[in-house]
Write a protein that binds this DNA or RNA. Structure first.
Length: 268
DNA sequence: CTCCAGGATAGTG
DNA sequence: CACTATCATGGA
């Protein structure tokens, strides 16, 4: 067990932020997450949080996963004082962090994400994990890791369709075959963000938006700025069609604030 | 029942 | 270039 006083950390907002699909709120108010073959329970309120792992595991993995060594007040300071909507979004979204997630998991999750609602993405991902992921045990219960590239590469297109992937099944299969072949997703980490975008977009089913999400959530490229239907609505309805001001090297952080606030406001 | 979802793609003008 | 029809399926 690890107990900490944290600023700019809110598990509930992170779980609902659309950047991770395997962090869920339990009936008892705690949050449960599976990442990199590990399970964790998080509980807390305000600035006080408890993590159900050893101090060694916390410092060795979860601290970085939750990006706890970054100072989010510095990111917020990049917001222009005149940008009233973004200031409201920041006020509403305080506690959101850009998680350091696995590039492979992000690639598959965001290929699946196209034309799916966030609840539907969660369902498809959990089905995929339950069928092809390594079983894990935590607090006496069985869970499943995200499937390894080899496990999905061994699937047929029909196996994947049966997980609710629909027309995205061949995309996921192509990504798995590449990741088990010439393409090293870990190796892409040395590329510039522009080269990373281009490399990701070589994979079928990966366009500019999915590439931006993978760059932001899988490679922690904070300059990435995914433009989805919600950001398009913000640009159209709030910024009158003109793109919001450049946010300098932490655009992705502010994008998350805008995304979550637009959804919360049910902007149309 | 209908409508839409953290889009990408191949095709057309 | 820009624009568009189409893709499969679950959730609201």
């Amino acid at each position: 067990m690890v107990e900490l006083k944290l600023q700019d950390f809110d598990a509930g907002k992170i779980a609902d932020s659309g950047q991770c699909f395997r962090m869920v709120k339990r009936l008892d108010g705690s949050f449960f997450v599976v990442a990199a073959g590990r399970c964790l329970r998080v509980r807390g309120q305000g600035e006080y949080w408890r993590f159900s792992c050893s101090p060694e595991e916390f410092d060795g993995f979860w601290r970085h996963y939750f990006d706890l060594d970054s100072d989010y007040s510095q990111y917020r300071a990049r917001c222009k004082k005149t940008d009233r909507f973004l200031q409201e979004a920041i006020a509403a979204g305080g506690g959101i962090r850009i998680l350091n997630q696995d590039p492979w998991e992000m690639l598959i999750c965001f290929i699946i994400s196209q034309r799916k609602s966030i609840p539907a993405i969660r369902t498809a991902v959990e089905t995929l994990c339950g069928r092809f992921g390594r079983p894990l045990e935590f607090e006496g219960e069985r869970y499943y890791a995200f499937p390894e590239p080899l496990a999905l590469a061994a699937c047929s297109e029909e196996d994947l369709r049966a997980c609710g992937l629909g027309y995205r099944a061949p995309y996921v299969l192509d990504a798995a075959l590449r990741a088990t072949g010439e393409l090293s997703l870990q190796g892409l980490a040395v590329l510039s963000t522009n080269d990373l975008r281009q490399a990701l977009m070589q994979i079928s089913g990966v366009g500019i938006k999915v590439a931006e999400c993978v760059a932001l959530f899988g490679y922690h490229r904070l300059e990435a700025f995914p433009i989805d239907v919600w950001i398009e609505r913000v640009v159209r309805e709030v910024y009158r069609g003109k793109f919001p001001p450049s946010y300098r090297c932490c655009a992705g952080v502010l994008q998350q604030y805008l995304f979550c606030y637009a959804r919360q406001q049910k902007l149309r």
